[in-house]
Structure formats: structure tokens, C-alpha cells
Amino acid sequence: MGLSERIERNVDLSYFEGKIPVNYVYTYGLGLEKFFNAIKEKGEFLASRCPECGAVYFPCRIFCERCFSEITRTFKVPGTGTVYSYTVCHLDMDGSPKKEPDVVGLIEVDGTEGAKFVHFIDAKPDKVTIGRKVKPVLKAKKDREGGIFDIKGFRQV
């Protein structure tokens, strides 16, 4: 099914309706706990470098996926970056049109040797260009809860 296809259920045939009655509470884990706490408390962005092979991760992690070494230290990066790619979303998850299209960017984060991060770009769709410098816009400290929306999005500079 294409994502843009109208959502209709096959109710001409006889069918049985159901749901899976669960909800989820995800722990952030050891790596992301540090990352989002640093944003929440200090407005800082943490990356980590593998002490063995030198691979850089953003957000910071507790292990290197390439050589499996433990990573205990983090370092600060400014949180700025460049637009590596972007898309403009006109449809919502259920296929209905959005009032305002969303601009979703893949941002190459400065000081991380090419690590990329997904978030919204606060710009008119026709004003976004690949390669533009962007900077993060944070919520006011009192409103930050420790999560991806402590970053409101990225703004082109």
C-alpha cells in the first residue's frame, strides 16, 4: 500500500474487528539519558568518540557499534549543522492533508565527523536548501522535559 493511498478497510467481506490493547513506556537507556539530560539541564549537545577506533556518535552512546568498545566519555558540540537532505510532508500519518506542510531535515551535525540527526526545519518549503547552515532552537529551560521536543527544531542561518 502506498502511503498516500486512501485508508479504507475491506468491509465488503465479512471480517472480525480487533485491537492490540497495549501501550509502551520506553526507557531512554544509558546513552540517551545523558544526551537528553544535558539538553534539559544545560542546553548542551553531547557527542561521543570511540576511544579505540575513533568513530564519533551523535547523540552520544555507551558503545561503539563498529568495534564494540565501551564509550564512557562525551564531548560538547555546538548543535549547529548543515542541511544534508530534506523533505516537505503535505500528508499526515492517516493520509489526510496537513494544514501547514512540515519540513523534515536530515542535518549533518558540526563537530561530529558527519553524524546526522533528524528534526523539523523551521522554514517555508521553498526557502529550504541543501547545504544551508542551521542552528537548533530550544524550548525555554522551564519547559524542557528531557526529550526530542526540548529541541523545537532547526532554523536556517
Binding site: 526507557t27 544509558l30 546513552g31 568495534c67 564494540f68
Partner: peptide, 26 residues
């Protein structure tokens, strides 16, 4: 109830398995 994510748990066990026999991921 663990604080670690599933992938962090997987790494902890896998890393220990490699360490136990002196191998590395390569």
C-alpha cells in the same frame, strides 16, 4: 525492568561474550 535499552542490553551481553574468549568484533 532495566534502564538499558534492548540494544544496550544486547551489547553488554555480546561484549562480555567476546571478552570471555579474547576476540574482538572484527
Amino acid at each position: 525492568r532495566a534502564q538499558e535499552t534492548g540494544k544496550e542490553l544486547a551489547w553488554q551481553a555480546s561484549k562480555m561474550a567476546l571478552d570471555s574468549c579474547g576476540l574482538s568484533l572484527k
